[in-house]
Structure formats: C-alpha cells, structure tokens
Design a protein around this nucleic acid. Structure first.
Lengths: 331, 331
DNA sequence: CGGTGATGTGCAAGCGCTTGCAAGATTGTT
DNA sequence: AACAATCTTGCAAGCGCTTGCACATCACCG
C-alpha cells in the first residue's frame, strides 16, 4: 500500500501517463495541451484529489499572487468597504489578500512592511497616509508595486489613488458658509487625514472672513460613543456653535443621538456634518450631511493599476477619485 | 558592476564568509550560532538589505505560516472584532492572515477553501456556520487544522469555538418573559445563526406558555437601515408588539432611532433588544439590552488551539465560550 | 513523397531556503 | 597531554513547481 501523502504534480502525471511538465501546462496554459491528454489529466486530478501547491508555484515563477493590504484596523473602519471590494476583485483574478493591521498610528507599519516584503507579495496596498519618511524610503527602494489609497501625497511612493483631504476640508467650509453658518466647531480624530481636512477647513474658513473655528480632538478609531462625548463637550465652549463638523459619520451619528436625548433639535439648534457617507448617514434621522468618497471606485482603480502593472504597462502615479459633499437634513 | 537583484541567503553568506546554512540557522535558531559569527552575519544582512524569502522557506519546511480566515464579509460584520484580534495575535507569532470573503450565504465558500488549500495554509478559520455537507466533508478529508468559530456544531469538522445560538435565543426568551413582556416580535436576518437563535427563542417562548411570536426576515448583512425599515413594518402587524427582538445591535439601533423619530418612546411603548453587544449598544440612547459574545475570547482560544496544534498537543474539539445577556435600558 | 511549419510533449535546470549528517573546532576532564 | 563531550559549521539533498530548449509528430503542400 502506498503511503498516504498529499498528491503532487508527479502523482497526477504518472497516473495520466504524461510528464509533470505537461500537467503543469494543463494547469496554467490549458490550450497548449491536446484535448485527449487534457482529458486524461483531468481524470487523474479528480482521482488523486490533487490541489496544486501554490507555494512551489510562487517560488518557481517569482510571483506569489499575494497582495498585502495594510490598514489601521478593521473593527470600525471607513476603509472596510474599499478593502472588501478589493478582496473580491482580487479573488476573481486568482490573487489572495493578506490583511495586516498597522494600528491607529501606524505603529506596526514597519514590521508589517517587512513581513509583506518577506512574503514577496506582488503588491502592497497602503490605506491612509504613511508619513514616516523611513518607511517611505524603504518601500521606494524595493521593486514592489505599492499603492497608497485614500490620500493623494505630493510625492507618491509609487502609485497613489485617492483624493485631497485638504481640499475636502476647504470645500466643506465653503459649503457651510454658503448655507449661512457662522460658528463651526470641528471634532477631529487624531489621524493625519482628519488633520488635513481640519486645516483645509480652517484656512478656507478664515480666508473667507470667518473666525477661526473651535475644535476638539478625539482618539481614533472614531466611533459612536465619541459623538456623544463630543456633544457633551460642547457645553465647555464659550458659545454654542451653530454647526459641528465631525471627522466621521459615526461621530456625527452619536452626536445627533446625544443632542436629541438632551432635547436639542438637529439641525435647528445645532447642525451636524459627518464624513464618509456611510450607509447609516443616509438612514439616520435626520439624514446626515456628509462627504462621499467612492470606496468602490478606489478599489476598482487599484485593480486596474495592478492589472496594468502585471501586463507591463505604465500607469499614472496619482489618480484622483475626488469626493462629493452630500447635502442632507442635518446641516 | 554586479547586477542589482534582490539579495539571497547566498549573498549574505558570501559577505559574512560563512555558508548559507549558517545564515539560515542564524535566522531561525540564533542560539546555535557563535556570537562572533552572528555579528558578522548581522552586518552582512544590514549591508545587503536582505529580506528572507518566506516562500522558499515555506516550501522547504512545508509550513506556510499563513492562516486563512474565511468570513462572510467585513463591511459590517459582528466578526470584525474577533478577526482583528486574531490577526493581531497571529502577527505577533510570525503568522499572516489571508482574509477571504465567502459572501453572505457562503456562495464562494468552496472556491475559497480550494484557494486556502492550494496555498497550503497552516489552518483555516471559518466564521459562522458552514452547513454545506460537501464542504464539510472536503475539509475533513484534508489534514489541515480547521477551526469553526462563533458556532458550536454537534459534529465539528475539526475544532469549534463558539456558543450555542439556539441556547442564546432560549435565554433571551426566558429573560424577556421574566421582565413581563408578552408580545415579542422577531427581526431575523437570513443567516443560519440568526435562524437558530430565532427558533430557540420561539420554542422556549411557546413552551413557557406564550403565543408564537410574530417575525420579519431581513437580508444580511444587517445594518442600521434595516432597523428603520423593521420599525415601519411593525405597522402591518395586527397588534403592536411590546418588545422587538433584533438579530443585531445595528438593527436595534436603527429601529430605536426610527421609533423616536415617530414619537414612540423606547422602551415605554416598545422595548427593543439587540445582539452582539457592539460598542454602540452601550452608547446608544437608550442603551441597548443585548447579548454579549466575547469575540476577543474566541480569538484567544483560536490562538491557543493553533499553538497547541503546532506543539503537537491534543486539543478539545468543542470549546464553549458562552454568552451573556446584558440588561440595559431598551428592554 | 519529401519538405515545411505548426503543434504537443519531455528533459532538466532552476526558484531560495531548510536540515540530517558528518566533520572540524573547542572546552573540560583526568 | 590525551581523550571525550559539546559546539559550530559545511555539504548536499531535497521541498513541488515552471519553463527554455529540443525533439517527435502530424497535417499540409507542391
């Protein structure tokens, strides 16, 4: 009796009466093998229960079909839709995604970059903004494709797909000013992205003749509870703002719920805006005015870039997917 | 001039004046190499910028240090905390997680199982309940460690870590009956897990002398908007329920918001319960009565099992992490 | 019917690392 | 100072697949 062990290409080949090379070709470039041979191989594969060892394949081809996605977190993340869409698309192409968590402040970024490099991933997808110059230099020096998403750095490591956070902040300032608000208050998660939006907002607001907005910084990841907290913190301000600009839809949602519980009407007594246009923003009562970013579009662009690279084509290095302010009931 | 190419073990070895084997040992079992040698190797690694090729390592050791996590989705999933905790823990052990999405109804499960097997992952972690007998048989026949989480099947594929959904339903029935509610209405996401809780609830409720609860089925993944929808659907019932048992905290939250918008007080006019004890459940106004499942504990047990397996120890096949009903304001 | 180009397959040399075995270097012992 | 025990290291044979090159077939043509 033969020892039970997981079958290899050889086993299939032997059974089909061909060489391993032919089986390999059958698997990777089916049209070069003759129909009759293919049929025998198919039968042999079924009989042996053979599952190709992608590790060996990766070593031989120097192509892992592994894509690393580095994200701060997934428990409550605005990137989840994008990541989900990416995983789906990539899976359809025969790639797998190894998901690595870098932590809110990218503390584990360096380590995860090393791991990704060690696994010889075909590409590294960064989410958020990597500000550490060492990490940037390190990535640049490798040949690997690296795609920065959700931001649009002046000097991308390789390819970047996103939008200008600063500009989104400015646009929101313009929008609210146009609606007649006069005393905005910012609730700003401590992340580079949020900070950029906040400073974009502030600069534009002031340039347009407004007083510098008040602000509250909150920890990331942002969540519903912080919205409640942020509402209560409004009491500490010298004057109640007429609109609170929140760094995320979750914060906006929490703030609205807490305001209502306190008997304050939104937007009549205080208006609120969010960021992200999560599904809940449209479902909340009142519906939340927010900034829409097309995460699915980002995912699609990522795929497009990856395919182009695989085909050896050149690709743009900065792809702006833009954003839109969605005016709803809350502001 | 030497051709630039990514450095290999050989390159480091040559530079350090030792054999590749020694460098390999330095990397994997540092204490067996002499200090002076180690120092030279360290220097050589730094000088060459060498990053070990884990693909080659995996092939040689037949150990990929890759764990596949198959989840229905991540956009809005009650499993996210568990997955996040697992990824963190595994990363600390030098493992990486390849995340695969199986879709709400496990439609892509088969394909993802094949991919995981092909990548020769060290373990497959399933989330939710895999009811397809073919998939179960297929997994069982492989030697791979497979861990089913968030459920507790009678006959685990290999190891299962979770709790009894049926029992959670029963417990909720008991709890609400004890609080004096009489006309429960169930909002049930179309997933095996939710269905088990619902039938556990119903059976217990009836056994205890209640009338069979009314119910509404909603699609997965469940979200805030469905809660709003579910509230409006209450109008179609012959009689308004006194408590709505929701399949998730998100649904509960949406339902509460919509009820309040309609001027209905929670819990006075209608009580609400959720499931999952997400952070927002404690933050919502009113706070939401729900069922707590310790996702972090599940993650820790997964790690423990994986380590035990790696060490060649035997492990239990069913690990019950239980659940707790968290009584709050909403019911 | 020999020549030609296309088509299908096999041979064998890798891909970059790990590890059993054995030999050389060191240390301690008597 | 000779010998045993312990450390360190190198050799070389894989791990399971891919692919350039060469060869064998075969259909087709003049």
């Amino acid at each position: 009796m033969t020892i039970a062990r997981t079958p290899r290409l050889d086993d299939v080949a032997a059974r089909a009466g061909v060489s391993a090379a032919t089986v390999s070709r059958f698997l990777n470039t089916p049209d070069v093998v003759k129909d009759a041979t293919a049929e025998r191989i198919r039968e042999a594969i079924a009989a042996t229960g053979y599952v190709p060892n992608m590790t060996a394949g990766a070593l031989a081809t120097n192509r892992s079909r592994l894509i690393a996605a580095l994200v701060p977190d997934i428990a409550q993340s605005i990137f989840n839709d994008t990541v989900e869409a990416m995983i789906d698309e990539l899976a359809a192409d025969g790639n797998s995604v190894v998901l690595a968590l870098t932590g809110a402040d990218n503390r584990r970024l360096d380590r995860e970059i090393s791991v990704a490099l060690g696994r010889r991933v075909d590409a590294i997808i960064l989410t958020g903004i990597v500000s550490d110059p060492d990490a940037r230099a390190r990535l640049r020096s490798q040949g690997t494709t690296v795609i920065e998403t959700w931001g649009l750095p002046d000097d991308p490591i390789d390819v970047s797909i996103g939008f200008s956070h600063r500009q989104a902040g400015e646009e929101m300032a313009r929008f609210l000013r146009g609606r007649g608000y006069r005393r905005p208050h910012l609730v700003v998660p401590r992340s580079t992205r949020s900070e950029r939006r906040a400073s974009g907002f502030t600069e534009r607001w002031v340039r347009d003749g407004g007083e510098a907005p008040t602000r509250l910084d909150v920890n990331v990841p942002s969540h519903f509870g912080q919205g409640r907290f942020s509402f209560r913190a409004l009491a500490d301000l010298p004057e109640r703002p007429d609109v609170v600009v929140c760094g995320s839809d979750w914060i906006a949602q929490g703030l609205i719920v807490e305001a209502q519980a306190a008997g304050i009407r939104v937007p009549d007594q205080v208006a609120v805006t969010g960021f992200g246009n999560l599904r809940l923003a449209g479902d909340m009562r009142p519906t939340i005015t927010t900034v829409d970013v097309d995460g699915g579009r980002i995912a699609r662009e990522v795929i497009r870039v990856l395919r182009a690279r695989a085909a050896g084509e050149r690709v743009e290095t900065r792809i702006d997917v833009g954003f839109r302010i969605i005016a709803r009931e809350s502001a």
